[in-house]
Amino acid sequence: MLVVDVLSLEVSGRGVIVTAPGERVLGERVDKAKTRVCMVNGDYVEFKGLKLPA
């Protein structure tokens, strides 16, 4: 068995959000699959004008 300890992690400043009907938390609210690129700024993610905790 391989065990790995992640000691640090840096993000590039961008992230991706993928939604699909029937999948995960928003599955019942989504009518078609979508992929969106969002900005990651320190402790939060900017998504459609909202600042969400990262």
Score class of each variant (00 low, 15 high):
34 K>S: 13
28 E>W: 05
29 R>M: 08
8 S>Q: 09
22 G>A: 04
32 K>H: 12
2 L>G: 10
44 Y>H: 13
31 D>S: 11
48 K>S: 14
1 M>L: 11
15 G>C: 02
8 S>M: 09
37 V>E: 14
30 V>H: 00
6 V>E: 08
10 E>L: 07
54 A>C: 14
50 L>R: 15
39 M>K: 15
21 P>Q: 06
42 G>C: 03
50 L>F: 14
27 G>Q: 03
32 K>M: 07
7 L>R: 14
29 R>K: 14
17 I>R: 00
2 L>N: 14
38 C>F: 06
34 K>Q: 14
34 K>I: 11
21 P>R: 03
48 K>M: 14
53 P>R: 03
47 F>R: 00
18 V>F: 06
18 V>P: 01
13 G>Q: 03
25 V>T: 13
15 G>V: 02
23 E>R: 11
14 R>Y: 10
16 V>T: 15
7 L>Y: 08
46 E>N: 13
26 L>V: 04
50 L>W: 12
9 L>S: 12
1 M>A: 13
8 S>G: 12
36 R>F: 11
40 V>F: 03
29 R>A: 13
52 L>D: 05
35 T>W: 06
46 E>T: 10
28 E>R: 13
38 C>S: 07
24 R>L: 05
11 V>D: 12
25 V>S: 08
42 G>W: 02
7 L>M: 12
36 R>L: 12
32 K>W: 05
4 V>Y: 09
16 V>Y: 09
15 G>Q: 02
51 K>G: 04
17 I>V: 15
15 G>W: 01
24 R>M: 08
49 G>A: 06
53 P>T: 03
45 V>N: 02
51 K>V: 04
25 V>N: 06
28 E>P: 02
47 F>V: 07
20 A>V: 04
34 K>F: 11
40 V>T: 04
